[in-house]
């Protein structure tokens, strides 16, 4: 289902998704390291819990595992996520 795959910045608030691909090369090396250290990596299950201030779209707060991690839309754009239905992979 190709319409269930999108970049992370397009993921609606509150929807569960899994990261399927990350364009690490488009990120600064330290930032890529930091993201991976915080558990934002291929295979991670996450949801967007908060987004933006005063109507803007930046930054994003992600729920990853038991943590909340803040990042910018520019980072989110480098990540492909797959929408999960009721927390399960679609098609399972």
């Amino acid at each position: 289902m190709p319409d269930s795959v999108m970049t992370l910045d397009m993921l609606p608030v509150g929807k569960n998704a899994r990261i399927v691909a990350v364009d690490w090369a488009s990120l600064v090396e330290e930032e890529a390291l930091r993201l991976r250290a915080l558990g934002v990596d291929v295979g991670s299950k996450l949801s967007v819990s908060h987004r933006g201030v005063f109507g803007g779209a930046d930054p994003l707060a992600l729920r990853v595992g038991r943590m909340t991690v803040a990042l910018r839309r520019a980072h989110a754009r480098a990540m492909q996520v797959k929408l999960l239905e009721n927390g399960l992979e679609s098609g399972q």
Binding site: T68, A70, L71
Partner: peptide, 10 residues
């Protein structure tokens, strides 16, 4: 320099 990012654990 390049615009900086913001990655932080809450």
């Amino acid at each position: 320099g390049a615009a900086s990012g913001f990655i932080m654990e809450m």
